[in-house]
Design a protein around this nucleic acid. Structure first.
Lengths: 243, 243
DNA sequence: GCAAAAGTGTTCGAAGTACACCCATGA
DNA sequence: TCATGGGTGTACTTCGAACACTTTTGC
């Protein structure tokens, strides 16, 4: 911002609209799901799109994202919510109507509340990630970027607990990794790795719970204070992953 | 973008200005340097700031960043340039004059051309990273975020070659890591690690060069086609790094 | 010869992989 | 008692850290 604003006529240009788009991910029935809204108007009427909306004059993009998420999910309390800026999409022409610069966010939810269709959307719904295309505008790209980012962050952060309820078992945590990565992991090794990272999870003293209805009851854990994972928990055998 | 633009008056709100800010990093004399401009006007007249400017109606933020960089450095050819979106800063009040949403970029240069002060800046200069504060606006935060991002990406991508000229020695590449991370690395292990990653560097057939004026001439390498680094080259002994 | 920088070899221990095996529960 | 999921043990391999050593240059 080294430019001169003194002599700048703020109305001289065609104005930019600044919006937020949300890639809201959760795990439902062992599969990655994304929150989508069905568009009511042209363009792309009847197509699915990521939820989002305008950044209002008084708020930051982060605040706008949190507000839009609360409106779409009906969740006023955003407990257990992970919200993170993904990147900004600013290609001219990405919205045919006017110049829209969109700050995209990724949100991770531990549970999947039934969404409320907003005022401007025909309806809102959780769709399986693999069945979620093609989307309106450039939202396919945003969604794919979000998935890739989340997958990468699972490797070197403790982000996986954001997909879990406040108390969870190690089996549930492992299923988060397996669902997002689309792989299977060795259970004993996963267990050791997680427990060897100080602050990743902490045991809940008296807790034990049946998970699949059968089998031995599993010990219950909470998310710990750590955010980083050192050494990282690498995805198995992928050569030449993109940066 | 599920909102309704049909009935939206694009002039109803106070318009947002959309700008780009650039954290342009290079290595000079073994120290990390950043390209800064001295502001000519209030606010922050006389303070150093990151170069940047408006996104014009016809261009994306990426295009605007590339244009601004060319203007500031006088480099029309952007060979060997790495330009990457960092994040978007949108807090209301970050510019006291009007609502400015800024898409920040990190650029890495192998060499340090003498900068040209733009039309709106008093002067432009390379400053050592450690001596570069306090900056105007929230640019201290942007610069710190850029440094952290670059440091993290060195671990698991082949980004380090962006700081090197087209042909370089392994000692020069190692100095990139050491300069950005502020650590020292074991030379034999670094060497093995880099050469064991297919496509990170490729030998230049006849090349050999003296680097420090003394010592054995070093073999010369080019950047290879790989972008990712698997397994990663982790920073030594840092516990609980932030995500 | 000496200092400086490149390059090679080797050792040791930590960490990851791939298993086999036992435990507790519901049907 | 069997299937299912949780939990432990262990051998093997790979990788990284540390450091000794050789090579080639300029002074």
């Amino acid at each position: 911002m080294a430019f001169d604003l003194a002599g700048y006529d703020k109305y001289a240009y065609e104005p930019f609209a600044v919006t937020v788009d949300l890639a809201v991910l959760t795990i439902r029935d062992g599969a990655l799901h994304v929150l989508l809204v069905e568009r009511g108007q042209e363009p792309y009427a009847g197509h699915w799109a990521l939820p989002g909306g305008f950044v209002e004059p008084h708020e930051s993009a982060e605040t706008a994202a949190r507000r839009e998420l609360a409106e779409e999910t009906g969740l006023a309390d955003v407990t257990g919510l992970h919200l993170e800026q993904l990147r900004t999409y600013s290609e001219p022409g990405r919205d045919p109507r006017m110049r829209v610069v969109s700050v995209a966010f990724t949100a991770l939810l531990p549970h999947a509340p039934e969404p409320h269709a907003g005022t401007d959307a025909a309806r809102a719904s959780w769709l399986p990630y693999d069945a979620a295309g093609p989307l309106a505008f450039d939202h396919d790209v945003i969604l794919a970027d979000a998935h890739e980012r989340v997958g990468a962050k699972l490797e070197y952060t403790c982000l996986a607990t954001a997909f879990c309820p406040p108390e969870f078992t190690l089996g549930e945590l492992q299923r988060v990794y397996e669902t997002v990565w689309g792989t299977t992991l060795d259970r004993p090794n996963f267990r050791r790795k997680v427990l060897a990272t100080p602050g990743f999870v902490e045991p809940v003293p008296g807790g034990a719970r049946l998970t699949g209805g059968r089998g031995k009851p599993a010990a219950v854990y909470r998310a710990g204070p750590a955010t980083a994972l050192h050494p990282p928990l690498l995805r198995p055998s992928r050569e030449g992953r993109p940066a």
